[in-house]
Amino acid sequence: MAAVDQDGNVLDILIQSRHNAKAAKRFFGKLMRKQARAPRVLVADKFASYVVAHKDLMPSVEHRRSK
């Protein structure tokens, strides 16, 4: 998993063998603590775990799914 801002700068990377909801929540939580705020828009691929993490941690953030 990688987080990139609108300018293409890499904010954080998490490498692990599973892309489950627990891992996604940990990654998004760590990223939000590091940035000290939630993003305006979340653009993620179509892993279902990102939907779960988004709804739990950032329900007010717009979520766009992309290939």
Rank of each mutant, 00 (worst) to 15 (best):
M1V: 03
M1R: 00
A2H: 00
A3D: 00
A3K: 06
A3V: 05
A3F: 00
V4D: 01
V4R: 02
D5V: 02
D5E: 07
D5I: 05
D5C: 00
D5Y: 01
Q6E: 11
Q6L: 08
G8R: 05
G8A: 02
G8Q: 00
N9Q: 02
N9P: 01
V10G: 04
V10N: 04
V10T: 09
V10I: 10
L11M: 07
L11F: 05
L11P: 01
D12S: 01
I13C: 05
L14N: 03
I15G: 05
I15T: 08
I15H: 06
Q16V: 10
Q16S: 12
Q16Y: 11
S17D: 10
S17I: 09
S17N: 10
H19R: 02
H19N: 12
H19L: 07
N20G: 04
N20P: 07
A21W: 04
A21E: 05
K22R: 10
A23N: 06
A23M: 09
A23E: 07
K25E: 11
K25G: 04
F27Y: 00
F27H: 03
F27N: 00
F27E: 01
F27A: 05
F27S: 07
F27T: 01
F27L: 06
F28D: 00
F28P: 02
F28R: 02
G29P: 05
G29E: 04
G29Y: 05
K30P: 00
K30S: 14
K30N: 14
K30Q: 14
M32R: 11
M32F: 10
R33D: 12
R33H: 13
R33W: 04
K34G: 02
A36I: 10
A36M: 11
R37K: 15
R37C: 13
R37P: 02
A38E: 14
A38N: 13
P39T: 06
P39L: 08
L42R: 10
L42G: 07
A44W: 03
A44F: 01
K46D: 15
F47E: 15
F47H: 15
F47K: 14
A48I: 12
A48G: 14
S49V: 09
S49M: 11
S49N: 07
S49K: 06
S49A: 15
S49D: 08
S49G: 13
Y50N: 13
Y50C: 08
Y50H: 13
Y50E: 01
Y50T: 06
V51P: 03
V52T: 15
V52E: 07
V52A: 11
V52C: 09
A53I: 11
A53W: 03
A53E: 03
K55G: 13
D56G: 07
D56Q: 14
D56F: 12
L57V: 11
M58Y: 09
M58I: 14
P59Q: 12
S60W: 12
S60C: 11
V61R: 06
V61E: 02
V61P: 08
V61S: 04
V61K: 09
E62M: 04
E62V: 14
E62T: 11
H63D: 05
R64W: 12
R64V: 04
R64I: 09
R64E: 08
R65H: 08
R65G: 05
S66N: 13
S66H: 13
K67F: 04
